[in-house]
Amino acid sequence: FHVTIHVGDITFHIHGVSEEEVKKLEELVRRGADWREIKKTIEEIEK
């Protein structure tokens, strides 16, 4: 999957994300995680 996440003024683009990881990111966004937490999760996914 290709994912784009907008957190305030920050936009993250992630490529090659599995469905499971998409759900993890959706959950973070849904519970209102700040951009640092989302960035950390994205960095883990990209490894």
Rank of each mutant, 00 (worst) to 15 (best):
V7W: 13
W35H: 05
R31M: 11
R36Q: 15
D34F: 02
I5A: 01
E46M: 15
T41W: 15
H6R: 13
V3R: 01
K47T: 09
V29H: 03
G16T: 12
G16F: 13
E27D: 12
W35Q: 04
G32L: 03
K40H: 08
A33M: 03
V22K: 14
K24I: 15
E46W: 13
R36C: 14
E20P: 07
V17S: 03
T11N: 05
E44A: 07
E26Q: 10
I5S: 00
E26T: 09
V29L: 11
H15N: 11
E37F: 02
E37H: 02
G16N: 15
K40R: 09
K40Q: 13
E19L: 14
L25S: 00
D9V: 09
G16L: 11
A33C: 05
I42N: 00
D34R: 03
E27L: 06
F12Y: 12
I5H: 01
H2E: 11
W35S: 03
W35Y: 06
I42C: 03
G8P: 02
D9S: 10
K39M: 15
I14D: 00
E20G: 08
G16Y: 11
V3W: 08
G8K: 05
V3P: 01
F1Y: 12
V29A: 07
K40Y: 07
E37N: 01
H13W: 06
E37Y: 02
R31V: 09
V17W: 13
H2Q: 12
E46S: 10
D9K: 10
E37G: 00
R31T: 13
F12R: 02
H15Q: 14
E21N: 15
G8I: 04
G8R: 04
R36L: 15
I10Y: 15
G32Y: 02
F1D: 07
D34E: 05
T4H: 08
E20H: 12
E43W: 06
E21W: 15
E43I: 06
E46D: 09
E27N: 06
H15R: 10
G8W: 06
I14Q: 01
K40W: 08
H15P: 03
T4N: 04
F12D: 00
H6A: 09
F12L: 10
V22C: 06
D34N: 07
F12N: 00
V17C: 07
I14N: 01
K40N: 09
V7S: 07
A33H: 03
I42A: 02
E46Q: 13
G32F: 03
G32H: 04
K39T: 08
I38T: 01
E27V: 04
K47Y: 09
E19F: 15
E21L: 12
E19S: 11
E27S: 07
K23F: 12
H6T: 14
G32E: 05
I38V: 06
F1T: 08
V17G: 03
T4R: 03
